[in-house]
């Protein structure tokens, strides 16, 4: 399956919907979107990965790159993910300690609201 990307802004939070496979072939598209969003002043990003079928280290690199970009603007990049096979790669690499990972968009929005 290819990669489908969409995004919307709710309050000050930009929600990026990702569907499909994030690998060495498709990751550049996600990278471009994240860079574009940051360049347009969206510094609080929530990436919904609930419909991601596959994620490899190239995709992790893109998410880390996005995190570094938003942090440069005192922003945030957090994730929604409950799929064990996706969470496993975050655990292997220690990235569960770096990204805020939520069970749903609603949960992430509530947490983001509390931090504002």
């Amino acid at each position: 399956m290819d990669l489908k990307l969409d995004h919307r802004t709710e309050d000050r939070l930009t929600i990026v919907e990702v569907e499909g496979e994030i690998d060495v072939y498709t990751a550049p598209r996600l990278r471009e979107l994240l860079i574009d969003l940051v360049n347009k002043g969206n510094f609080h990003l929530l990436v919904n990965m609930e419909k991601v079928d596959f994620l490899d280290s190239t995709g992790l690199g893109v998410l880390v790159g996005g995190l570094k970009r938003v942090r440069a603007h005192d922003g945030s990049l957090e994730l929604v993910c409950t799929q064990e096979r996706i969470l496993k790669i975050f655990r292997i690499t220690g990235l569960t300690k770096v990204f805020g990972i939520y069970a749903s968009v609603e949960e992430a929005k509530e947490a983001h609201g509390r931090d504002k």
């Binding site: 992790l60 880390v64 292997i92 300690k97 770096v98």
Partner: peptide, 18 residues
Amino acid sequence: VDAMLGIVPEMPGLGIAV
């Protein structure tokens, strides 16, 4: 992770670690 968030923009060895 420290390397990725620090001075190294891309961590080429990450795939091997995975």
